[in-house]
């Protein structure tokens, strides 16, 4: 059961990721990316990381992707102004590198039958993450809020500037 779900969602995530890269229209890419994020959230659920899965949907699918969609629609580029999908020499090298790396990885990381070690009961619980987040990593946590603040101010500043 779990294995079937794992391969189902993995196939979905990989297929959608391919769709993002291969589709010319950015709106379609964005929809595919949302599908990929959602499939990944399901994989996170299979890993018993409930809280992270929910946050994944909330942050990525709910916020980041809507932002992408919003910007694409504000620009609303006509079909002929979209950058083409044709492959130059440099880019062909990129694809070749990707193919070689894929072969290498397939040999190196090919899935084995072994399962996970037994995990603590409270693994997916919110408290399990909250503890270290507010104790050992309190400084990093506070710094991320600074990152977000800089992000907000920077985005407003950049977007409001008259070209």
């Amino acid at each position: 059961m779990q294995v079937a779900f794992f391969w189902l969602f993995s196939a979905l995530a990989v297929g959608c990721a391919l769709g993002v890269v291969l589709k010319k229209n950015p709106v379609v890419s964005a929809v595919f990316l949302m599908g990929s994020m959602f499939a990944l959230a399901c994989l996170f659920l299979l890993l018993d990381a409930h809280f992270i899965a929910v946050i994944q949907v909330l942050v990525y699918a709910g916020a980041v992707m809507v932002l992408f969609g919003f910007i694409i629609m504000i620009l609303n580029l006509p079909q002929e102004e979209l950058p083409p999908l044709t492959l130059g020499v440099t880019r062909a090298w990129g694809v070749a590198f990707g193919a070689v790396a894929l072969l290498f990885l397939a040999g190196k990381f090919f899935p084995t039958k072994e399962g996970f070690m037994p995990t603590p009961q409270e693994f997916g619980d919110v408290r399990f993450i909250a503890g270290p987040l507010f104790k050992e990593y309190a400084l990093a946590f506070e710094l991320t809020s600074l990152v977000l603040l800089v992000g907000v101010v920077g985005a407003v500043l950049l977007a409001k500037r008259k070209a």
Partner: peptide
């Protein structure tokens, strides 16, 4: 059972 190697493969 899908183990760590499967997840590494997909990732």
């Amino acid at each position: 059972m899908a183990g760590p190697s499967s997840y590494m493969f997909v990732a």
